[in-house]
């Protein structure tokens, strides 16, 4: 049957929610299996120690992106019916910067904190309380932020529109760039490190530091 099913009014409200729950279960399970329930693994990329985040994210995006293109060509999915993703470039850039800061300080993002909390991480639960507080703050300040929130309106512009390349060309270019990124990551992963492994790192420190911080939480 040609999709998207919901837009074609094939799905009832109840089914829509049930299917939402089911894709959520898959989403959460695969995030956990990718190691995204661990704050130290997630933040590892920012110390060039663990590259699961860019590897998992880029491969997920490219699989879905190429899949959309294939399903569209095959007539299985009407790409014109997909929800528009408008670009408001300034709030998205500033929001992205802030989100990156919140990520490395807090250790999670909204989806991964739910996975971490479900695997027993108390810090993830506290992070989630912070999320709600941050959203509340934004809502309270919205009147003052409104003009910035709607600034840099470029419409529903895609990378294909922006570059003038066909969508398949964008997929091809991104595959090349991802390949280059993965090659670079491989080089960094294989480079010899003086702090190779946890043990070497820890023995390099004083016992006093280990004594206070090394204990299991």
């Amino acid at each position: 049957m040609s999709g998207p099913l919901e837009v074609q009014s094939v799905l009832s409200e109840g089914w829509r929610l049930v299917l939402g729950f089911i894709v959520g279960v898959l989403f959460g399970f695969f995030l956990e299996r990718g190691g995204f329930g661990s704050a130290r693994k997630l933040t590892g990329v920012f110390y060039l120690k663990d590259f699961a985040v860019p590897k998992v994210m880029l491969s997920a995006i490219l699989v879905a992106m190429a899949g959309l293109l294939v399903l569209g060509r095959a007539g299985v999915l009407d790409l014109d019916l997909l929800a528009a993703m408008p670009t408001y470039i300034w709030p998205q850039l500033v929001g992205g910067l802030l989100l990156g800061i919140g990520f490395v300080v807090g250790g999670y993002c909204p989806g991964t904190s739910a996975v971490a909390a479900a695997s027993g991480k108390w810090d993830a639960l506290v992070f989630m309380a912070g999320l709600v507080t941050g959203i509340f703050s934004f809502a309270e300040l919205f009147d003052r932020l409104e003009s910035f929130y709607f600034s840099g309106d470029l419409g529903d512009v895609t990378l294909a529109d922006w570059t003038g390349l066909p969508p398949a060309g964008i997929v091809f270019l991104l595959l090349l760039m991802a390949g280059a990124a993965f090659w670079l990551i491989g080089r960094i992963e294989r480079r010899p490190r003086k702090d190779e492994g946890d043990l070497a790192e820890h023995t390099g420190r004083s016992d006093a530091v280990l004594g206070t911080g090394g204990a299991q939480s």
Binding site: I101, A129, G130, T133, F138, S217
Partner: peptide, 24 residues
């Protein structure tokens, strides 16, 4: 750690609304 978890969550909560979404 818990203080930083809350602070990071707060900044991120705000950021997700500004950016109209998060990593997902």
């Amino acid at each position: 750690r818990l203080t930083l978890a809350f602070a990071g969550g707060l900044v991120m909560g705000f950021a997700t609304r500004l950016a109209r979404g998060c990593t997902s």
